[in-house]
Design a protein around this nucleic acid. Structure first.
Length: 575
RNA sequence: CGGAGAGUAGCGCAGCUUGGUCAGCGCGCAUGGUUCGGGACCAUGAGGUCGGCGGUUCAAAUCCGCCCUCUCCGACCA
């Protein structure tokens, strides 16, 4: 492979920090010439960034191939009709970009490819003998995100590895799924990232399991719960925690008490001198046409994802003042007692049945009720866990206090089941000659986000510090004084030699001051720098510097010696 | 979609309150020269319909209205 000459390459660097960027990875990807924005959440990959992306892709390909994946490439433009058949033309909402072709046919830009791959499987897979099958692609997706942000962490147009497996039954999917899980762990580890696999909420997607792979980061766009005791980790939406309960006490009779001006739980609890956990909080939602009256212990928060799952609906929104008034509830003093008759649905968190003698609203401005008890005083349409797990709550498995953490979601794997194969009629004949829907799994990795995550995890004040595995180049050979002929000549032969031996080499042959070139070297973060300059060359030596720890070494200006030393440094840098 | 902030040269910014020598600074860029090991120096120069449209005014980067774009927070998120 030939080496690349910086003077003829396209690697524009910025000395100053761009005002528009906030995340370190975003700033550095702009400054070190990896990407340039075209529009919100839409980026051009410059040659340097594209090289890095290809390195990440190569790792992903290798690991996908290792678990039997076969790479293919599906279209970006899909007929809308296909999406209508699974119902996702509507479900995906405005994130799905739609347009008509010249003949007026409705088309969409693919935000993901379950429909297309399932349609392919429907046509091609007829027999159990063709199973199992893993197909994957690395391809551009478009989702019109309501809020693109953070550079490549959340974009609208992005490169994604999406894989789909097909099985004759759920148990074969159960057997294969852990293989993908382990492949994902290898992918992220090889990219130099320590990820946490988090149990995710299968939600309305159905299926029996799902994991998200998170990079722990305070800058993360996602939240999850982790137990330091037993390792339990779950997406915030699905995380369960123990709800501590108070010692049992006898039921006391309900009594009305004046609480003027107490519109919040804190105000009521403070006014009456009871802890918030001794109150019942009312929260209102609208699920489709119905108003949902949620009752939860005052110290807890409603987890809307859990509530939506319990209700079996995707349409859940906070109720308006009018909707709340329409069911006869008084905001600030709302009470579940006497509401059910008015047609609202009452959902009770499972913290409520355990609690005794709570303070709840009286449905009358300025009054609350003491000693409200479920189910003595009011009934529920549904009871279940709808509370948000909090930092410090006891783990359901081991009791240790849970921690809430932020992270960047790098990958998501999913046991899909038969949702898509059933909707699209993708069946095969099993061993008994029976037609059955294909059982599917799907597996995604955001490649660009993964690249951003690598930089998020590997940088310092001066620039990127690439792990050797995904570095765009292994070695940067700098001729410090190119006008002084012999430096450039030696640097060039070093670059040629290293390239000949399989390394990716960038030769900095630009006519710039040494200071500038050293700073650029730090910024672009190539693992090993070989500097050819008068100071060391006078002693017949070349200076080597390792980016990750700044360790410097001089070796004699002999090609074989340099090649050896560079190899040693690289090995140490990837360890 | 709600809240906040910002659009002036490739990048970072000042000017706007109080309309009129305000088209400016630093970096970068070009040319020539001097430099050459951790973002050098001198000289000369190019580069902007001040986000757009409309309005007020003798006069608008500056005041008013509408729109567009970008960033951050939230809602949202396979």
């Amino acid at each position: 492979m030939p080496y690349v000459r910086w003077s003829r390459y396209f690697l524009p660097t910025w000395k100053e920090e761009p005002a528009e960027a906030d995340l370190p990875s975003h700033k550095l990807m702009l400054r070190a010439g990896l990407i340039r924005p075209l529009a919100a959440g839409i980026y051009t990959y410059l040659p340097f960034g594209w090289r890095a992306l290809r390195k990440v892709e190569a790792i992903v390909r290798e690991e996908m191939d290792t678990i039997g994946g076969a790479e293919l490439h599906m279209p970006i433009v899909h007929p809308a009709e296909l999406w209508a058949r699974t119902g996702r033309l509507e479900d995906f909402g405005p994130q799905l970009v739609r347009f008509a072709d010249r003949a007026g046919r409705e088309m969409v830009l693919g935000p993901t490819h379950e429909e297309v791959v399932t349609d392919l499987a429907r046509r091609e897979i007829q027999s159990w003998r063709q199973l199992p099958l893993m197909l994957y692609q690395i391809q551009t997706k478009f989702r019109d995100e309501p809020r693109a942000r953070g550079g490549l962490v959340r974009v609208r147009e992005f490169t994604m590895k999406d894989g789909y497996s097909f099985h004759e039954d759920a148990s074969d999917l159960d057997r294969y799924y852990p293989e993908v899980y382990r492949a994902y762990e290898r992918i992220f580890r090889r990219c130099g990232l320590a990820t946490v696999a988090v149990e995710a909420d299968p939600g309305l997607m159905g299926g029996s399991g799902s994991h998200e792979f998170m990079l722990m980061s305070d800058q993360g766009e996602d939240t999850f719960v982790q137990c330091p005791g037993c390792g339990y980790a779950a997406n915030r939406e699905g995380a369960v925690a123990v709800k501590s309960s108070d010692p049992d006490e006898g039921l006391r009779p309900v009594e009305e008490v004046a609480t003027p001006g107490c519109y919040t739980i804190e105000a009521v609890a403070g006014f009456l001198g009871v802890p918030t956990r001794k109150t019942a909080k009312a929260v209102f939602f609208r699920a489709g046409a119905r108003v949902v009256f949620v009752v939860i212990r005052g110290d807890l928060e409603v987890n809307e994802a859990k509530l939506a799952r319990l209700l079996g609906t995707a349409e859940l929104a906070p109720a308006s003042e009018e909707e709340i008034a329409a069911i006869g509830a008084v905001p600030g003093y709302a009470s579940p007692i006497g509401i059910s008759a008015r047609g609202a649905m009452i959902v009770v968190d499972d913290s409520i049945p355990q609690a005794r003698n709570l303070v709840a609203g009286a449905n009358k401005e300025g009054f609350h009720l003491r000693n409200v008890n479920f189910p003595r005083d009011f009934q529920a349409s549904l009871v279940g866990d709808i509370a948000l797990a909090r930092d410090g709550d006891p783990c359901v498995r081991c009791g240790a206090p849970l921690r809430v953490r932020r992270g960047i979601e790098l990958g998501h794997i999913f046991k899909l089941g038969t949702k898509y194969s059933q909707a699209l009629g993708a069946t095969f004949l099993d061993r008994d000659g029976q037609a059955r829907p294909l059982v599917m799994g799907c597996y995604g990795i955001g490649i660009g986000r993964l690249l951003a995550a690598v930089i998020e995890a590997h940088h310092d004040e001066e620039g990127i510090v690439w792990p050797a595995s995904v570095a765009p180049f292994h070695v940067l050979v700098t001729a410090l004084n190119p006008e002084g002929d012999q430096h450039l000549a030696l640097a060039t032969s070093i670059a040629a030699r290293l390239a000949q031996h399989g390394l990716d080499v960038l030769l900095d042959d630009r006519k710039r001051s040494p200071g500038e070139k050293f700073h650029d070297a730090k910024l672009v973060g190539i693992p090993v720098l070989a500097a050819v300059g008068p100071r060391s060359l006078r002693r017949g030596q070349v200076e080597l510097e390792r980016r990750c720890d700044g360790v410097r070494d001089v070796v004699s200006a002999d090609l074989a010696a340099i090649e050896r030393a560079v190899g040693d440094l690289l090995r140490a840098a990837s360890g």
